[in-house]
Amino acid sequence: MPNALLISNLTKTYANNMQALSGVDLSVEQGDFFALLGNNGAGKTTMIGIICSLLNKTSGQVSVLGLDQQTQLNKVKRTIGLMPQEFNFNPFEPIEEILINQAGYYGIDRKTAKARAEILLKRMELWDKRLDAAKSLSGGMKRRLMLARALIHQPKILILDEPSAGVDVEIRRSMWAFLKELNAQGMTIILTTHYLEEAESLCRNIAILDKGQVIEKSSMKKLLTKVSTQTLILESVNILPINLPELDFAIEKLDDYSIQVVLDGVSISRALNALSGEGIEIEHVRSTQNRLETLFLSLTSKAD
């Protein structure tokens, strides 16, 4: 089975001699949920533009589902759905027509497109607004419209460029749930995001770009094992004792029901078992930091 995406020695140099990509090699397996991370200017958007045929590469090869992008461009375009970061639809057009017209670009007849639009708009909770002009939608609704438009031709690969930018927490979570559904059904999803918690929550594999080069490629699980220290806030079922036990990890009382622990090479389950043995039963755990963000900052600083 061919990779969903295979990039070999990809370079991009703009007319002003700025090199956005420098010999990038990258592969994404079919059915993966893949994170592509990097600071502003790292080359993420340039890479997506090249994959989606919006930009011309300077050199290198791009293959999508075994199709050579250069010689089989039309077939490649049909396999990819892109949700760009910027809103780029006609703001005066009714939202249902935006989806139907997008489907037309892929040769989908109006009857089929209308049926698909209904399914997607209902799933995105936009059906009641289908006749409204797109400009009347809130920022979160516009994001959902962009996602529906990317899916109207039923692509095999979905590329999301900062899909949660400017979206409130509730909409972000519902979008995550929908993306997980799509991925569970076999769709390959490639995600760029500044919300590193989003990548940690959704993605199985990850590549980190810095200054036009891939500086890390790994499974999310393996990558996060490189961060040995975690600081957690634990909330107890009952009032905590006045004097906390001495254990093999740092522990500090915050209030009658909360403690902070610093785990260095100690697993969360081991810490919870140790506390339970002292009569402290924990009902809620939350992190004071994003582990992926800590690692990301470490890797990019090393690349400087």
Rank of each mutant, 00 (worst) to 15 (best):
S219W: 02
G104I: 04
K111E: 14
E96R: 04
K217H: 15
I251H: 05
K111A: 11
A250Y: 00
E246Y: 00
A184D: 13
E162Q: 09
A165S: 08
L240N: 05
K253T: 10
Q289H: 14
Y195H: 10
V76N: 04
A303H: 11
V62G: 06
K217F: 07
S287A: 14
D256Q: 07
T58D: 11
S258H: 14
M220V: 13
A15D: 15
S219H: 06
C203N: 02
L295N: 04
M1F: 12
D248F: 07
E86T: 11
H153A: 10
K44G: 10
L5C: 12
D32L: 00
P245S: 01
Y106G: 08
E283A: 02
V262I: 11
Q72A: 15
A274N: 04
G166T: 03
G81V: 07
G81S: 12
V227N: 13
P245Q: 05
M146T: 11
L232K: 03
G49T: 10
E97C: 03
N183R: 00
S174P: 04
K44R: 01
I206W: 00
K226M: 14
I157T: 12
N88C: 15
L67M: 13
Q102L: 03
T193M: 09
K111V: 13
A184K: 05
C203M: 05
D210L: 01
G66I: 01
K57D: 15
G139C: 09
L99F: 03
N183S: 02
H153C: 11
F87D: 15
K253D: 05
T193C: 03
F249P: 06
L160S: 12
F296K: 08
L151W: 07
Q154H: 12
V169E: 15
I98A: 06
R116T: 09
S298W: 08
Q260E: 15
C203K: 01
I242L: 14
I171V: 14
G212K: 02
S27K: 07
T300F: 04
E278C: 08
R270M: 13
R270E: 15
M47W: 00
S269E: 15
A35V: 12
L99T: 06
G107V: 05
I282M: 00
K217G: 12
M83C: 11
E170T: 06
A271C: 14
V227C: 15
H284V: 13
G43D: 07
G43Q: 07
Q260M: 12
Q30C: 04
S164T: 15
